Amino acid sequence: MAALDVLRAMAKEPQTVEAFFAEVGRAAGADPRLDAAVTGVKDSLQDLATVQVRARRIVERMALVLQGSLLVRHGHPAIADAFCATRLAGDWGSAFGTLPPGLDLVPIIARTTPKLG
Score class of each variant (00 low, 15 high):
79 I>A: 06
58 I>A: 08
85 A>K: 03
74 H>Q: 09
85 A>I: 02
75 G>R: 11
58 I>D: 08
76 H>C: 07
62 M>G: 00
90 G>H: 00
77 P>H: 04
77 P>R: 03
62 M>L: 06
78 A>F: 09
84 C>I: 04
88 L>M: 03
72 V>R: 13
70 L>K: 14
69 S>T: 11
75 G>A: 13
90 G>E: 00
77 P>D: 04
59 V>K: 14
86 T>K: 09
62 M>I: 03
61 R>F: 13
57 R>V: 09
96 F>N: 05
60 E>N: 15
83 F>E: 01
82 A>D: 06
89 A>K: 01
91 D>G: 05
62 M>E: 01
68 G>S: 08
76 H>L: 11
73 R>Y: 14
95 A>K: 15
84 C>K: 07
81 D>C: 04
96 F>L: 08
62 M>Q: 03
90 G>F: 00
88 L>W: 02
66 L>P: 11
85 A>T: 03
93 G>W: 08
64 L>Y: 12
62 M>C: 02
91 D>P: 02
63 A>I: 06
60 E>T: 15
69 S>V: 08
65 V>A: 09
91 D>K: 06
93 G>V: 09
60 E>F: 15
87 R>K: 04
78 A>W: 12
78 A>E: 05
80 A>I: 02
86 T>G: 11
76 H>P: 01
81 D>I: 03
91 D>I: 02
84 C>N: 04
57 R>N: 05
93 G>N: 12
72 V>P: 10
71 L>I: 04
66 L>N: 08
78 A>S: 07
66 L>K: 13
94 S>Y: 13
58 I>F: 08
86 T>E: 09
89 A>D: 01
86 T>P: 02
96 F>K: 10
57 R>T: 09
91 D>F: 01
62 M>Y: 06
80 A>H: 05
87 R>E: 02
96 F>T: 05
75 G>L: 13
94 S>M: 13
90 G>D: 00
59 V>C: 11
86 T>S: 10
79 I>V: 05
95 A>I: 14
69 S>R: 08
73 R>A: 14
58 I>V: 10
65 V>Y: 06
60 E>S: 15
73 R>H: 14
73 R>S: 15
91 D>R: 04
57 R>K: 08
84 C>M: 06
77 P>S: 05
66 L>S: 09
71 L>A: 02
80 A>T: 05
96 F>H: 09
67 Q>M: 12
63 A>S: 13
90 G>Q: 02
75 G>T: 08
68 G>V: 08
93 G>P: 09
59 V>F: 10
74 H>L: 08
80 A>F: 02
78 A>L: 07
73 R>M: 14
75 G>V: 11
58 I>L: 10
91 D>N: 05
81 D>M: 05
84 C>H: 05
74 H>N: 10
95 A>V: 15
57 R>H: 10
